[in-house]
Design a protein around this nucleic acid. Structure first.
Lengths: 329, 329
DNA sequence: CTGAAAGCGCTTACAG
DNA sequence: CTGAAAGCGCTTACAG
């Protein structure tokens, strides 16, 4: 029942040439003068047999593939990660590289490499510098974004800077008591740490108390309880740095339920600048991370390593983040 | 500079055994009685050399891999696609299969197979029944969701049903003049067609005029112009079926700019039920697609083909969709 | 219990 | 211009 695989040998037989000739024709191997007539016969035979070369055999023989593996950290894969991956893919594709993605799913880099033979790895926050070094030793170049801002990757998304930016903005708006609304998704934990650190640092710099941290589920009633806790205190919170735009919207929904309005009672600032941020009312002030740029820069880092002859200049090593001020602050 | 690859031969040499023994130990090959002492020596040697078997060689030799390739259609990859893929991955992982993703990026299935040797393909709306048949002929089982509702895949997300549900709900709410707010993302086109068809069918059934279709960018001002067009007519639109929740929010933002409110002036219903839908005000009525179920069912379809001995029952072949009524209708 | 050998499907020197 | 042969790194009958 299972038809045996069509191999280049079958194509050769059908075209009446040798296997090498098939390979030369199909790969346009330079320096091989193949007669137009032979070439046509080979191409026809391949088409008739619907020949697809074995990726495994090519990889084994060549010692490498054209596949760049993107490993995504076990974080909530949102617009940011998708934008990074998309831009990376678009950057390297014109140079003949194929992008495949995987979530880390708790595995170490070694395990991941048991099922794929990539020519390079783009690590989106998944691995530690140690693991990366181990892969590099195996001759697989690794480029990566450090999502938590830790070094050892070629690029960093400065999470502390994001938090700092949120806090500084609220402080500039006259808010003296800040809170941090964290996500209740455990996968978000690593991202959160750096951001809170940035908020804390900004508060400290201005002589303000450290932010009150409160976990905020994405439901209005639960968020309302969280908001209650922020307000029912000797020094009620007047400014909230939210983990992302979704959490920010949850805070706003919770506030609404409690009869509070933004920015009059509490100012709220998110992170991500999802399309919806500008569509809701009041429109959300948020920190925009240029994820496309991160992906493109990562792609250029890959190309630099894989094709030094392209002479690609050293790309940025830090993502650009900026504040988009709208109506909630 | 580039260290040569550590092979099983190196491990064998170091452990003082043959290559076969290394393979037996590392793969726990059943029916091979290996002395505990030998086993330990091999394991140690492998660890010391940081041996990682060649994925390519294993694939070539075995004729297959443990990799299930998910190919995503060139549609806007949003929460729905991610949920499908996540659930699929979680379903097959316990059975030893690794999931890798790729976007179709306009390639045909043959081209995709040039760089990967998957044991099965999960097609998320990317390929036509013809292409799928060709892959199956190459002994690669393909399971797939048809995003546009067209047959030939093992599962369908009934886009027409989604549109029908939106329209029926608005009609039940007494709206007699409906519009369809389409996305301006060209990648959304295939999804849109089926949904509009469903809206159209519902209108026809109730003797109502066909929906006015208007493209709605994700910006309040542009959306306001779109809304203007829907209202400034002999028979002003009173109900809008939006392509997804984002477009629905854009419509609502446009309405707000024009002094219109929902549902008083115009009722709006989205699709996706993103977390934000329940957090915004007014909370969004929307059609919820059980994407997790789709992914899990897809995973079970994969397992059925790959491991018939598991005796997995034939999963559903159609995604469950249901209406979540909130405040905008 | 262990080893030598074949072969998966390809590409690439090398010989003609 | 074309073909025979080696070898990429594994696994698995097969022989001992």
């Amino acid at each position: 029942m299972s038809t045996p695989r069509v191999t280049s040998r079958d194509v050769a037989r059908r075209a009446g040439v040798s296997q090498s000739t098939v390979s030369y024709v199909l790969n346009d191997t330079p320096g091989q003068a193949i007669s137009a007539e032979t070439r046509a016969r080979v191409l026809d035979a391949a088409a008739e047999l619907a020949y697809t070369p074995s990726a495994a055999a090519r990889a084994l023989r060549a010692g490498r593939t054209d596949t760049v593996l993107v490993v995504l950290a076990d974080i909530p894969v949102g617009d940011t990660a998708l934008a990074i991956v998309g831009a990376l893919s678009r950057t390297i594709r014109p140079h003949g590289y194929t992008t495949v993605y995987q979530r880390r799913d708790g595995r170490d880099l070694r395990t991941v490499l048991r099922s794929v033979t990539p020519v390079a790895i783009a690590d989106v926050g998944a691995f530690s510098p140690d693991e990366i070094a181990a892969a590099v030793e195996r001759n697989v170049p690794v480029v990566g974004v450090s999502l938590d801002g830790v070094d050892g990757h070629v690029m960093r998304i400065p999470q502390d800077e994001i938090g700092r930016m949120q806090a500084e903005h609220l402080i500039a708006r006259g808010r003296r008591r800040l809170a941090y609304a964290a996500s209740d998704d455990p996968d978000a934990h690593d991202l959160t740490a750096g951001r809170i650190e940035g908020v804390r640092a900004a508060c400290a710099r201005h002589g303000l108390p450290a932010p009150v941290v409160v976990e905020t589920p994405l439901y209005a009633d639960a968020a309302a309880r969280a908001v209650d806790r922020l307000r029912n205190r000797a020094d009620p919170v007047t400014g909230v740095c939210a983990f992302d735009d979704e959490v920010a919207l949850a805070v706003l929904a919770g506030m609404r339920l409690g009869g509070l309005s933004a920015p009059a009672d509490v100012a709220v600032v998110g992170v991500d600048d999802v399309p919806l941020a500008r569509l809701v009312s009041p429109a959300l002030t948020t920190v925009h991370v240029r994820s496309d740029d991160v992906g493109a820069a990562l792609g250029r880092h890959v190309l630099r390593r894989l094709k030094p002859e392209l002479g690609i200049a050293e790309p940025d090593d830090q993502a650009t983040v900026h504040l988009v001020v709208r109506e909630t602050t």
